[in-house]
Design a protein around this nucleic acid. Structure first.
Length: 480
DNA sequence: TAGCTCGTTGGACAA
DNA sequence: TTTGTCCAACGAGCT
């Protein structure tokens, strides 16, 4: 008689290189289980954009499993309770899952493991979301790295080729199906307003979408990656972040594809591969940091910032979220985020610096907006990025580094492709004033059909004054 | 161990 | 217009 195992799927909605799924399949019949449990993820339950993505991703994944011969059993509720019930209904005696690393995920996994073990069910977990697990990388004194470059170098020396997990061509369904299964629709992940549909039209959630994105990137963008990755008006980057976050592609698969190119590619492709690999290792760095310092998502790493006097200013915050700050690059970024659920990394830094330094609003306000609107919202990456920009994190930006939104625009979007796309009311502005419409003569504005304060806002703050205010505030925080 | 070097992503200003 | 220099100091990580 065949044995039955449960594979408990979470952020690993893929069939390729999925160690938990492969292990279950190797053993016998497979009950694939997805449990939507936002309460267990609090305070970091998926935001609106991520939920919309998840809706699509689950739909695609369920079909993939069906093609392989099994069903995706979807539930909503308490993970321990659901798993216990599925175990008793299907006679499964083993549960497999791929590990998660953020605080809420870890404590939930522990709870599940002890509850199931107590019932005599074996539980096995796997590394799948990372190249290196937190305990695998430590400095010479046995502690976690806090500076990226040494971390990166250390990782490079340990990057060995490992085998991807393989799946048989057919999966064996269980003899008995669990009850109370739900459709993807029943989870009500998709917001009712049309925003979500149009936002998702920029993406193809799911494993095949991820594979296509990776292929396109390697073929057409890798060679120019070191230069183009900073130009928000170009594709330039891989766009893999939401796929990686939801586990639709394994970082191992990404790395091995990149290394293939490295082996046989041109000199510029090799350079591109190196630069891209660095970004993949940033993802590892962020995840490790949050693992080692679990309070990071809500508290500043640098304790001097616990008492920082962040301003409270709902109107400025609202203007920032809507892309109405009067600084074209900032506004373009915020509107790209709203429209597509994603923002170019260069622009993320600029808008984050603007919020925390020009407006002196709390980085957590920015992080929570990003959390709700990004399809790639990832607790570790989001936290690291915001704390870095705010200057209170590990290995932070120097406090006097305050991005000038005009200079950044002129440097990285000189022809205004990006700004004209997302801030169409400025599309007829000449290049010279595109990033500084407030300095244009009335004649120039009239010719471009722009009435400042009416079609496009006056700047929320004046750059020089805001910069000085920020420097003074940061100086005080540092005990100056 | 003690010192040395360096730190993802920049800006402002002077020459 | 471009280029060089300074903007802090501290502590992680290395030799």
């Amino acid at each position: 008689m065949t044995v039955t195992s449960i594979v408990w799927l979470r952020r690993d909605l893929r069939v390729d290189d999925n160690p938990a799924l492969s292990a279950a399949a190797d053993r016998g019949a497979v009950v694939a289980v997805y449990i939507y449990a936002p309460k267990e993820e609090q305070p970091w339950a998926a935001g609106a954009a991520s939920r919309a993505w998840l809706h699509r991703s689950l739909t695609v994944f369920a079909q993939q499993l069906k093609d392989l011969g099994i069903e995706l059993n979807i539930f909503h509720g308490d993970s321990v309770e659901v798993l216990k019930r599925v175990i008793s209904e299907t006679g499964a005696d083993m549960v497999y899952y791929n590990r998660r690393y953020e605080p809420e995920g870890i404590s939930r996994d522990r709870k599940v493991e002890s509850a199931l073990t107590a019932k005599g069910v074996q539980v096995r977990s796997f590394k799948s979301a990372l190249i290196f697990e937190p305990h695998e990388i430590e400095n010479r004194s046995g502690k976690p790295f806090r500076v990226f470059t040494p971390f990166y170098k250390h990782c490079l020396t340990r990057l060995t080729k490992t085998k991807a997990a393989r799946l048989p061509p057919r999966l064996e369904p269980p003899a008995k199906k669990p009850s109370a299964r739900l459709s993807v629709e029943a989870l009500q992940l998709m917001p009712s307003h049309p925003w979500a549909e149009s936002m998702l039209s920029y993406w193809s959630p799911g494993e095949n979408g991820a594979a296509r994105e990776l292929e396109t990137f390697l073929e057409s963008e890798l060679a120019s990656y070191p230069r183009n990755r900073d130009i928000p008006g170009l594709r330039g980057v891989s766009r893999l972040s939401p796929h990686l976050h939801h586990g639709e592609v394994s970082p191992r698969a990404v790395v091995s594809a990149v290394r293939e190119v490295e082996k046989s590619g041109s000199a510029s492709e090799r350079k591109g591969a190196e630069a891209f690999l660095r970004q993949i290792i940033w993802r590892e760095f962020a995840t490790h940091l949050l693992f080692h310092f679990p309070s990071l998502a809500s508290r500043p790493f640098d304790k001097r910032f616990e008492s920082f006097s962040w301003r409270i200013d709902a109107r400025s915050y609202a203007a920032w979220t809507r892309g109405l700050t009067g600084y074209p690059l900032v506004d373009a970024g915020m509107r790209e985020l709203w429209a597509t659920g994603w923002m170019h990394n260069r622009v993320r830094m600029v808008v984050a610096s603007f919020l925390t330094k020009h407006l002196l609003l709390h980085w957590r306000q920015g992080a929570s907006w990003f959390w709700d609107t990004l399809v790639d919202a990832d607790l570790a990456n989001n936290t690291l990025g915001w704390q870095w920009t705010a200057g209170c994190g590990v290995d932070p930006a120097p406090y006097f580094r305050i991005f000038n939104p005009v200079a950044q625009g002129e440097r990285f979007d000189p022809k205004g492709r990006y700004v004209r796309r997302w801030v169409p009311e400025l599309s007829r502005m000449p290049d010279r004033f595109l990033h500084r419409p407030f300095e244009a003569d009335p004649g120039v504005l009239a010719q471009a059909g722009v009435s400042l304060g009416k079609d496009y806002p006056q700047p929320l703050v004046e750059h020089k004054a805001a910069r000085e205010r920020a420097l003074a505030a940061y100086d005080r925080a540092r005990g100056g």
